[in-house]
């Protein structure tokens, strides 16, 4: 039990007790957003940066009132950015918006249909941001070389996709994830593709340090209940990983009950 209590996620020197990171998009309203975030137990919460709507009601509630930066570690992202310039500018604005906050999620997309990351632009953007003092958690393809390069230039966490953003298709390439995990000395967080609780548990059992998800919770029939399920799945997967699973014995059963001392047969 002591081991479990000590088992924290450390990103850029800061300690988190939850290994589940959640997004705040696609919810019905801010009440549901807040209820789902709280049910998930997540401490790191992603937000997007967008233009104010000209002509909108200025009294409209603000996400930062619902999820105050004093209670959550907000992780501004660059979702929707297709060039390194847009991504860098977006995060500079985020830093200003959040009073100098430097922990950010970088993603530079390459294609609107798949939302697959453009790794060339991602690497260049990460370099610029790190030089400017940002702590960059980076969305990446599940290419082990790209993931290692991002770590080497100073990203504080690498976040490979498990499958396409918002697809809910689960962990499609556990082997690549495993290579990335084995090579990494910074946290590896599966970002994108988780569809249901078992996907999150599998990611954690593989040895991922955390899971980041949005649609799997927000698009569930009952988002708040799914948020609670994800919290348990991430915890269960992590404990299973730490516990160390039994060896698989192919085609060879092993009874759990004693073999000796079963009652006698009536006829011999």
């Amino acid at each position: 039990m002591a081991d479990k209590l000590m088992d924290n996620l450390v990103i850029a020197g800061k300690t988190y007790s939850s290994r589940l990171l959640v997004g705040t998009g696609k919810y019905k309203d801010f009440d549901e957003t807040r209820a789902a975030v709280d049910a998930s137990g997540a401490e790191i919460v992603t937000v997007a940066i967008r233009r104010t709507n000209l002509g909108q009601n200025p009294d409209e509630p603000n996400l930062l009132d619902v999820l105050p930066p004093s209670q959550y570690t907000l992780l501004p992202n660059t979702a929707g950015c297709y060039t390194l310039e847009d991504a860098v500018r977006t995060l500079r604005l985020a830093r200003e918006l959040l009073d100098g906050h430097t922990l950010v999620k970088l993603e530079v997309l390459g294609d609107p249909r798949t939302l697959y990351p453009n790794m060339v632009e991602t690497l260049k953007a990460a370099e610029i941001l790190i030089k400017e003092g940002f702590q960059v958690m980076v969305y990446t393809s599940d290419d082990p070389i790209a993931a290692k390069q991002l770590e080497e230039i100073g990203c504080v966490a690498v976040m490979p996709l498990a499958s396409l953003i918002g697809s809910g298709m689960g962990i499609l390439n556990p082997w690549n994830l495993q290579i990335i995990i084995e090579n990494a000395t910074v946290p590896v967080i599966v970002d994108a593709g988780v569809g249901t609780a078992s996907d999150a548990a599998i990611a954690m059992e593989l040895g991922c340090d955390g899971v980041l998800m949005n649609t799997a919770i927000a698009a569930a029939q009952n988002p708040v209940l799914m948020a609670s399920a994800m919290k348990k799945a991430v915890e269960a997967g992590r404990e299973a990983y730490l516990a160390g699973r039994m060896a698989k014995k192919l085609y060879s059963a092993s009874p759990s009950s004693p073999v000796a001392g079963t009652i006698g047969q009536l006829k011999t």
């Binding site: 940066i49 233009r51 104010t52």
Partner: peptide, 10 residues
């Protein structure tokens, strides 16, 4: 000018 806010996102 760009004027931005934080909104829900993943």
């Amino acid at each position: 000018l760009e004027i931005v806010v934080a909104v829900g996102g993943g």
